[in-house]
Write a protein that binds this DNA or RNA. Structure first.
Lengths: 120, 120
DNA sequence: CTATCGTACAACCAAATGGTTGTACGATAT
DNA sequence: ATATCGTACAACCATTTGGTTGTACGATAG
């Protein structure tokens, strides 16, 4: 039995909110390709370092990126696990539309459930 | 050649923002299963009719739902096409992470492109 | 040791968000 | 004809968001 973590409503809110800004999506893309320090990221945007720092924090709270310390730098890298869960959630909406839903836990989609079986 | 509509940054912002609230995700689920009037939707939430109306408007502006008039009612139904595009976008982030990107248009992900080939 | 780099964080501000109530108006039911 | 239902929309308000600048502090370079 694979313990598949389900996102709560609040977590899902945070993830979609984090994805709802082009700068943050860009940061996600860049850190998906390669780990980047906050100042490396900040260098390419037309806003203050502190602003970029805040965008990274939003991504971090949504657990879309992970930050680790290396000397005085903070290296940011994308973590695809939450993205995968969100993709699965969106797929469920499409399945609902197609009338493809039969399993109860799919109907309960977003509502808290302890665990379920892996399929992906 | 399949004309595949790509979402602009602003459109993507709107879609993710629309998805970043549990009430709106619930409306999307309900209208994915069956067309619902605005007051049918509103009946089940602990907020004013006007508030629900606004949530529906946000979903509509993101083109996640379509509203049609039937007598004095406005019937809302989910439209899965934008969802599908967003799922594809998220899949690209995962692909970036896995180093699976080889085609140029995938690297340009979100940036405006006239058309591309269908694969889904 | 000192200067600087990378970061963290607080305070502040304008704009957007998410709720409310009130008014208006066409469609329907009596 | 009148009352009511379903909706639209404006005005208002508290909170959140997304930016700013300024200060502080550990890590590194000279």
């Amino acid at each position: 039995m694979v313990v598949r973590y389900e996102l709560t409503d609040a977590e899902t809110d945070r993830v979609f909110h984090a994805l709802a800004a082009a700068t943050r999506r860009d940061i996600l893309r860049r850190t998906a390709v390669e780990e980047q320090s906050v100042s490396q990221l900040a260098a390419d945007y037309d806003m203050s370092f502190a602003a970029v720092q805040k965008h990274v924090a939003v991504l971090e709270e949504a657990r879309l990126v992970i930050k680790r310390a290396e000397g005085r730098e903070r290296l940011v890298r994308a973590d695809p696990t939450v993205i995968a869960r969100v993709r699965a959630l969106l797929a469920q909406y499409e399945d609902l539309w197609r009338g493809r839903i039969d399993r109860l836990d799919a109907l309960l989609a977003e509502h808290p459930s302890s665990d379920s079986t892996e399929r992906d």
